[in-house]
Amino acid sequence: MVSAPLLELRDLRRSVHLPSREELHILRGIDLTVHGGDHVAVVGRSGSGKTTLLNLLGLIDHQSGGELLFDGVDVSRLGERRRARLRGASIGFVFQQFNLLDGRTALENVMMPLMYGSAGQFWRREKLAREMLDRVGLADRAQQLSARLSGGEQQRVAVARALVRRPRLILADEPTGALDVSTGEAVMALLDEIARDSDAALVTITHDLQVAALSRRAFLLDEGTLHDIDTDGARDALTATAGLRSGREAVS
């Protein structure tokens, strides 16, 4: 029996009005269905609308037309408070620049989202944060200041922070852009593994075909619409040219 989709985008559109009063059409009709446990990548050049799409999926921005259903609920019908609650409880963000708090330890950074969670999460925040740091291989670095961590370690702390509330949707915005190739592959493998284990949907926004080839389904965002990418073909081509490491090593 096929489960109901977590995300459904139907003719999703986003336009903005320019100072000249002209209308700029950024997204012209996006159709996409994503289930729990799925890993989808959206590839596009700068200015193609990737960030706009990410902001819509993350309930940060509002569409101009079409439908965006989260677990069957049309989010356009939700008020700002309900959108904020849904975003905080069900969506985790992983950013390219990590966005960790300076002067705070890895543990304190991961605990931060739990300050705004349920009462149970709040009172168990240190235990939950330590468990997630252990999950990403950083249990022994919990008390280290974020500035003293390597780039790969900082990104893993950011992953732990995004996942500590067990979101149902993980949005990764250029998550490997500040990392070397090997570390980037390890981080993507970790994200994919945790998302699969928790039956969360993972949507990666990237300009990098190598990152897209690590997903199960990939799409090119061009001229405001999505186009299928053959991930198997891309993966085979990249592997043949040593563009992808074989056998993704465990994060260490």
Rank of each mutant, 00 (worst) to 15 (best):
V211Y: 06
L24T: 04
T225W: 00
R156D: 13
L133D: 11
N109M: 05
H227W: 04
G66M: 07
A200R: 02
A129D: 10
V94D: 08
A41Y: 06
D102H: 11
A186F: 00
L171G: 14
Q154A: 10
R130W: 02
T231P: 12
L12D: 11
P175E: 04
L220F: 01
N109D: 13
A139V: 07
Y116W: 09
T51N: 09
G243C: 08
S182K: 13
H207P: 01
T51P: 14
A201H: 10
A250V: 13
G37Y: 06
R166P: 14
F122T: 05
V16L: 06
L114S: 07
S48E: 05
R104S: 08
L221F: 00
L220H: 04
R14E: 07
R135M: 07
G44M: 02
P113H: 01
A234L: 13
R14G: 09
R245F: 02
G49M: 00
G243L: 10
A189S: 13
L221P: 00
L133G: 14
Q96G: 10
L128W: 06
D140L: 02
A201R: 03
A4P: 12
G177E: 11
R124F: 00
L24D: 04
T105D: 09
D102R: 12
L209D: 09
F70W: 12
Q143F: 00
V211C: 05
D140Y: 00
